[in-house]
C-alpha cells in the first residue's frame, strides 16, 4: 500500500501568548519539567542482582524489554507524530512533538539496560524473538493500522490504548523484580517511563474527549462501540502475549489482573468507565506498592473516629502560594 505523506495543510507561527486550551501549556510544562535521560539512573548497580536471576527469569526479562522497545519505537516514530495533523491547536502540535521525542528516549533507555546487563549475542537473540513473536507483531499491526487510517478520533483511541494499556504486560516485570528487591535501579528507570506514559495517555485521551464533544450522538456511540471492541481485541492478544512471556515462571494470572486494572484506566483516560469488575482487577498488593508506595496504604479513613489521621512520612512539599 502506498500512501501520500500526510502533513498539516497550513502552518502558522506558534504563539504561546495566545492560548486556546490551557491544558496544552500545563501538559507542556509538566513534560518539560519531567524530562530525564537514562544516564541519570545508575543501572550498573543492577549487574550483581541480574546474575542472581535464573536463566528463565533473565530470558523473560530480556524479552519483555524488547517488546517495550518496540512499542516505544512505534509511538515515537509513528504514533505521536500521526496525531499532529489533527491537532486542534498549535500548542497541541508542540506537545505531540515533545511526546514523540520522549518516546525515543524511552526506546533508547531499554538499550541502556541491555548494554549494562547482557551480551550482544543475547540482545540480538531477544530482538529476533520479538520480531518473530506473533502476538507482539499483532499488537503492533493493530495499532499501526489505526495510525495509518483516516479517522482522527480512532487514531487517538489506539494511541491512548498503547500509552495506557499495551505497555503494562511489560511493565509488570520490573515492578515484580523491584518488589523482590531485585533490579531496583532498572525499576527506577521504568518508573520514570511509567510516569511519562500517564501524562501521555491522559493528554491524548483528553483531546479525544474534546474531539468527541463536537460529534453527533450517533458518531459518539460509534466511537464508544469501537473503543470497547478494540480493547477486547487487544486484550485477547495481550493474554496470549502474557502467557508466552510469563507461563514458564507461573506469573501469568498475576500479570493478567494488572492488565485488566490498566485496561480500565485506559478507558477512563478516554472518558469511559472501566469494563472489568473489581474482582478481575485486584492487582497483587506487592506489585501495586512497587508502582506506588502509597497505593496500598489504607486510605479509607471514613470508618473509625475519622479524626486520628497521622501522616506517616513528612511531606516536604511546600508551595509558595500557601498563606498559612
Amino acid at each position: 500500500m502506498s500512501e501520500k505523506l500526510k502533513l498539516v495543510s497550513r502552518v502558522s507561527a506558534i504563539n504561546w501568548n495566545r492560548i486556546q486550551d490551557e491544558k496544552d501549556v500545563e501538559v507542556w510544562n509538566r513534560l518539560v519539567n519531567n524530562f530525564w535521560l537514562p544516564e541519570k539512573v545508575p543501572l550498573s548497580n543492577d549487574i550483581q542482582s541480574w546474575h542472581t536471576l535464573t536463566e528463565a527469569e533473565q530470558l523473560m526479562t530480556t524479552r519483555v524489554f524488547t517488546g517495550l522497545t518496540m512499542l516505544d519505537t512505534i509511538q515515537g516514530t509513528v504514533g505521536a507524530v500521526s496525531l499532529i495533523p489533527d491537532a486542534l491547536t498549535p500548542h497541541e502540535e508542540a506537545v505531540y512533538t515533545n511526546i514523540a521525542f520522549m518516546e525515543s528516549v524511552h526506546a533508547k533507555s531499554y538499550s541502556s539496560i541491555f548494554s549494562t546487563l547482557i551480551s550482544t549475542q543475547e540482545i540480538d537473540e531477544a530482538f529476533r524473538w520479538s520480531e518473530e513473536n506473533e502476538n507482539l507483531q499483532r499488537k503492533a499491526e493493530i495499532v499501526l493500522n489505526y495510525y495509518r487510517g483516516d479517522d482522527p478520533l480512532k487514531r487517538k483511541v489506539a494511541s491512548t490504548m498503547l500509552e495506557s494499556f499495551l505497555f503494562y504486560s511489560g511493565f509488570y516485570a520490573p515492578m515484580y523484580w523491584s518488589s523482590r528487591a531485585k533490579l531496583t535501579n532498572t525499576a527506577d528507570l521504568i518508573r520514570l517511563i511509567i510516569r511519562d506514559e500517564a501524562v501521555h495517555g491522559y493528554y491524548i485521551g483528553y483531546k479525544y474527549q474534546k474531539g468527541l464533544e463536537q460529534e453527533t450522538p450517533e458518531r459518539r456511540q460509534e466511537m464508544k462501540d469501537y473503543t470497547f471492541e478494540l480493547l477486547f481485541e487487544l486484550y485477547d492478544n495481550e493474554e496470549d502475549y502474557t502467557e508466552a512471556l510469563y507461563d514458564p515462571l507461573g506469573l501469568t494470572e498475576d500479570v493478567k489482573a494488572f492488565l485488566r486494572y490498566n485496561a480500565n484506566k485506559a478507558l477512563m483516560n478516554l472518558g469511559y468507565e472501566g469494563m472489568f469488575p473489581k474482582e478481575a482487577t485486584a492487582v497483587n498488593p506487592a506489585i501495586l506498592s512497587s508502582l506506588s508506595p502509597n497505593a496500598d496504604e489504607n486510605h479509607d479513613f471514613f470508618s473509625g473516629s475519622g479524626s486520628s489521621y497521622v501522616i506517616g512520612k513528612a511531606v516536604n512539599t511546600e508551595d509558595e502560594d500557601w498563606d498559612f
Binding site: R191, I194, R195, E197, A198, Y202, K265, L288, L291, S292, P293, N294, A295, H299, Y309, I311, V315, T317
Partner: peptide, 16 residues
Amino acid sequence: NTNFGSAYCLAGSIVA
C-alpha cells in the same frame, strides 16, 4: 493516578 508513584494522591496528604 498510581503511575505517579510516591506522588500518588499527594494533594490529599498535603491538604490534610
